[in-house]
């Protein structure tokens, strides 16, 4: 990951924070090589620091536009939470397929927080918004509380395991997340691509790999169609005049 691009199983991780001084075409060329030689299902883009600097947002925008224009591959964006629905409208329109949001205590304390989060989760298809929860000192009950909290907001929590913890043996967080997701009606369709508790999940374990792949591809195309439908185009108003 030294150069900002890394490969983790079926997932290409791109850290824009390390790339914003490099030409987009150069980054894309590297990605083309990786995709050509490997079986890539997901681009996992770390948004970097662009939220502080406008020109970095435009780099990000240009990068995502080019990425979506070049590859028909699932794109997850890891970004910090902004209390602005316009920002999320923009990245939704760019073609970001799923989000990993990071929140601060201050964000969660804001009165508008639940409303904004509901807006975000309704913008993307069910099960496409994630957040990372740090396991910290392995205090299971605190983590369970966080899982329940985010699940109610239709956000899928993923547990970032600390090295000294063995969460899977101490209590079954994975099963707990799955149960919360089911209770809150969150779709499992994207979960197979991502780790919930440090291991690749097979929630719908009965299905074979090829079947899962086809189902995933189908869901991906449906989500693209959904986005296309939800974006208003000005040009369409001229259609009727055959212009």
């Amino acid at each position: 990951m030294d150069n900002g691009i890394g490969l983790d199983r079926n997932k290409v991780i791109v850290d824009l924070g390390k790339l914003h001084n490099i030409a987009v075409s150069g980054v894309l060329q590297k990605l083309k090589e990786i995709v050509y030689h490997n079986n890539v299902d997901v681009f996992y883009v770390l948004a970097g620091r662009y939220d502080n600097e406008l020109h970095e947002f435009y780099f990000f925008k240009k990068f995502v536009e080019k990425l979506k224009g070049t590859f028909n591959i699932f794109l997850m964006l890891n970004t910090k939470y902004f209390p602005s629905t316009k920002y999320f409208d923009s990245i939704f329109a760019l073609g970001v397929d799923a989000l990993t949001l990071s929140f601060t205590e201050k964000d969660r304390g804001s009165g508008k927080f639940p409303e904004t989060v509901r807006y975000i989760t309704s913008l993307w298809p069910s099960g496409a918004v994630f957040t990372d929860i740090a396991a910290g000192e392995c205090t299971g009950e605190k983590i369970k509380e966080a899982i329940a909290y985010f699940s109610k907001l239709k956000i899928i929590p993923r547990i970032m395991k600390a090295d000294r913890c063995d969460l899977n043996s101490s209590f079954c967080l994975r099963d707990y997340i799955v149960r919360e997701m089911k209770e809150n009606g969150i779709s499992f369709r994207w979960v197979n691509n991502f780790e919930l508790c440090g291991i690749i999940q097979k929630v719908d374990g009965q299905k074979g790999r090829s079947k899962r792949k086809i189902a995933g591809k189908f869901a991906f195309e449906l989500a693209s169609l959904r986005r296309k439908l939800m974006l208003k185009e000005v040009e369409s108003s001229f259609d009727s005049a055959s212009l």
């Binding site: 947002f57 316009k86 920002y87 409208d89 923009s90 939704f92 329109a93 913008l123 959904r226 439908l229 939800m230 974006l231 208003k232």
Partner: peptide, 11 residues
């Protein structure tokens, strides 16, 4: 940031 209009009517 570009102005994006999201249509919230039923799919």
């Amino acid at each position: 940031m570009d102005k994006v209009v999201i249509d919230r009517r039923p799919l």
